[in-house]
Nucleic acid binder design. Structure first.
Lengths: 241, 241
DNA sequence: ACACAAAACTTGTTTAAACAAATTTTAAAA
DNA sequence: TTTTAAAATTTGTTTAAACAAGTTTTGTGT
């Protein structure tokens, strides 16, 4: 169902906001006006606006209207947001990605791996260690654990290009939810060997558990980022629940 | 409108999930069953479930059902998620907070401050520097800039307790959206002076711009966290938009 | 000119209904 | 027993309508 109407309206409004069609702090047309403009129901409009709210593009105010609070960011460094592959992020930030596979092995989850990753003991896994370059600078070391039941026949060529492309286009595995944790950790010998850390003695570490559309966790990844090129953006809304 | 029905259903389902009423990976009752159980419309049920999805509690699968993917986390360190004050986070993590005000001054935004904070040049601001303790360990240095038009009559007593409580309960300013950026930065002399950084030579830095219900940005904050106690959790869903 | 009330307008919540799309179950046929 | 088709179930999208709640505008009366 990728032809949802609210998604089209969302995209259209988003691009208009990004193009500066509405001033910063200006009110968007009211829901009733948008209903006429897009020839749809009010619910559909509200759904599109709701998506813009979670993106931090607009702010709704009961009785007043919907205010544009979008401000273009100067994305000088590698910025991560939603669920994206390294390749996708790089392209979005207009940079050239390259990936080097340091290691690709198969292993069975023991108690130690199970504790760290969340996979049950005994799970058959692929373990991949990769080095990600951006504009020929080594920025990220990735430690991936993939469930072999889901990610079948993983090869070095696939790992070098994009595992996510392989998952979505070849295996038709759809990624849905990803639980992430960000921490700061001391550098290891491996980090020091592959990344140019300069004076820094620690890294930004993003650990994530990813679920497919069957609700199965099929990936655990630890991404270790060179700190001077790490930037994570987020948009929080205070829930009245 | 805090008596919304979908919010009650959301809370009830959430507490049931947390209480282990549904097994991990088990399907929740179908929407139609929940409609009968809660005596409401299907839309209201869907709204509650939608909130659980964004919280990472459940996963919806078209044609199949709604799967519980909640796993209790071992929150050993200070974990931040939505828009919360330091005090709220501490209480949620069952720890004792204490705040020390290092400095409280008034200033006018020049070009340098404007660039860093996003406030227009000439804005009248309060600048507050605070040290946050958790169980008597100094963990965070906070640099706050508040718009004086909104945050009127800020005192050291208020800053020591909770500015957010003052905002919501006294000034009736409702916080709505917060744009956050996480980075890793080298320590400064101030960081070194007040925080016990051990071997670490950098910190986790969270910068945020906070908007009130009028769509006005009234706060800019930079929180500098002791890295070994910093943990940020997130839940990303792949959008098909 | 000012104050106040009413009306109009805006977003927020809820219900009801219909259909689409994906999956599972059931039943029939080979 | 196995296969296949139909039916039932489940979530996803959209429309229409009504009312609630907050804000702004309008108009009336003093």
């Amino acid at each position: 169902m990728p032809k949802a109407k609210y998604a089209d309206i969302y995209k259209d409004l988003k691009s208009k906001i990004e193009a500066g069609e509405y001033e910063f702090q200006e009110l968007l047309p009211s829901e009733n006006h948008l209903v006429l403009a897009y020839d749809c129901s009010r619910n559909t409009i509200r759904r599109a606006i709701s998506a813009l709210v979670t993106d931090g593009y607009v702010q709704t105010m009961q009785g007043k209207g919907v205010r544009n609070i979008f401000q273009p960011t100067s994305r000088t460094s590698f910025t991560i947001g939603g669920i994206e592959s390294f390749k996708e992020s790089a392209i979005r930030n207009h940079q050239t990605p390259r990936t080097e596979v340091l290691c690709l092995t198969e292993l069975t989850a023991d108690i130690k791996i199970s504790d760290r990753t969340g996979f049950p003991v005994g799970s058959e896994l692929y373990y991949v260690q990769r080095l990600h370059y951006l504009d020929e600078k080594a920025l990220i070391i990735n430690h991936n654990y993939f469930l072999k039941d889901v990610v079948t026949n993983l090869t070095e060529e696939i790992a070098e290009n994009s595992v996510y492309e392989y998952l979505e286009n070849v295996l038709h595995v759809s990624i849905v939810t990803s639980k992430r944790t960000m921490t700061v950790e001391k550098m290891t010998e491996i980090d020091e060997k592959y990344l140019d850390l300069g004076d820094y003695n620690c890294l930004a570490v993003v650990s994530s558990q990813t679920y497919n559309s069957d609700g199965i966790m099929f990936e655990y990844t630890q991404s270790r980022h060179r700190p001077d090129y790490f930037r994570f953006q987020d948009n929080a809304t205070r829930r009245t629940l």
